[in-house]
C-alpha cells in the first residue's frame, strides 16, 4: 500500500473556545486511526483573528461552545474565514460542524432579538426555541454512499436551537431515537457533499469509529474500503453498541 505517502491534514477551528463537550475526542480518534494505518497526521489550528488557509487542510472541524464563545466565533468566522471555508468545500475538503459548530455552518441563528449570521455553507437556519433544550442519547440512520446499506450513528445531543432545513438541504440522517434537528421533523443534521453538520455532539467519533474512517477516506479522496480495516476494533464496536443501548436501540 502506498500509505506512507498519505497524510491527513486536519484544521481545528477555535479549539480552545469551541470545545465544550470534549470535542478534542474527535481529533484524538482521527489522529490515532490514521497513525495505526501508517497515514501521516497534521493538526493545524485556526483561532480568533487568523486567516484560514483553504488549501492547507483536508478536513475542517468546528465544535460546540458556550453561548458567549459561540457569539465571538460567529463574528470572527464571517469576517475572516467564510470565503476560505467556501473555497475548501468547493474543492471537496471535508467540513464537519458539531452542535454549535453545525449551527454556524448555516445561514443564521436567531436567539431572541439577536440574529447571528453564519457562514452559509449549508441551507439551514436555526432558531433558539422558547422551549426546553433537546437533551439525550440519540441514534440516527444515515446513508453516506448510494451503493452501500444505511448505517447508524449513535451519540448525545444537547441543544436549545431548532434547526430547519431549507428547500435545497438534505439531512444527514433520519432520527431512530432522540430529537434531531427540531424535535419534530424526524431529520438530523445536514449534508451537502463533504460538508456535514450534526447535533451528535462532542466526541461522536469514539462511539462511531466507522464514521471516523469514512471522514478520513473522504478527506483523502479515497474509498473507505481502500483504507483497510484495523485488526483490533473490538473495543470500538463495544462502545458503539453501548451508545446504541443508551439511546434505547
Amino acid at each position: 500500500m502506498p500509505s506512507q505517502a498519505r497524510k491527513l491534514r486536519v484544521c481545528a477551528l477555535y479549539p480552545d473556545l469551541m470545545n465544550i463537550y470534549a470535542d478534542r475526542g474527535n481529533l484524538i480518534v482521527l489522529e490515532r486511526r490514521c497513525a495505526w494505518r501508517g497515514i501521516g497526521f497534521q493538526l493545524n489550528v485556526c483561532g480568533m483573528g487568523e486567516q484560514l488557509d483553504s488549501d492547507g487542510s483536508d478536513l475542517f472541524y468546528l465544535g460546540g461552545g458556550q453561548d458567549r464563545d459561540q457569539l465571538l466565533c460567529a463574528a470572527d468566522l464571517v469576517s475572516f474565514k467564510r470565503a476560505a471555508l467556501h473555497r475548501a468545500a468547493d474543492r471537496g475538503a471535508v467540513v464537519l460542524g458539531v452542535c454549535g459548530g453545525y449551527q454556524l455552518l448555516g445561514h443564521s441563528y436567531v436567539v431572541g432579538e439577536q440574529e447571528i449570521t453564519g457562514v452559509g455553507l449549508v441551507d439551514v437556519h436555526t432558531v433558539r426555541a422558547a422551549a426546553p433544550r433537546l437533551i439525550g442519547n440519540i441514534a440516527i440512520e444515515v446513508q453516506l454512499e448510494q451503493q452501500s446499506p444505511p448505517r447508524v450513528l449513535a451519540g448525545f445531543e444537547n441543544h436549545g436551537g431548532r434547526t430547519h432545513l431549507g428547500a435545497h438541504a438534505e439531512p444527514l440522517g433520519r432520527v431512530l431515537k432522540g430529537h434531531g434537528n427540531d424535535g419534530t421533523s424526524g431529520y438530523e443534521g445536514v449534508r451537502r457533499a463533504n460538508v456535514i453538520g450534526t447535533y451528535l455532539h462532542g466526541p461522536l467519533l469514539p462511539k462511531n469509529a466507522w464514521f471516523a474512517d469514512w471522514l478520513i477516506a473522504a478527506a483523502l479522496g479515497v474509498q473507505p474500503r481502500d483504507l483497510g480495516e484495523l485488526p483490533d476494533d473490538e473495543l470500538e464496536s463495544q462502545a458503539h453498541a453501548s451508545a446504541l443501548r443508551a439511546a434505547g436501540m
Binding site: 480518534v29 473490538e234 473495543l235 463495544q238 453501548s242 443508551a246
Partner: peptide
Amino acid sequence: GTRAADLAVRLKYAGVES
C-alpha cells in the same frame, strides 16, 4: 459500569495497550 466500553475506548486512545 453501564458505559464500560466507552471508558475502555478512552483509555485505548490515551495510549494504554488494548
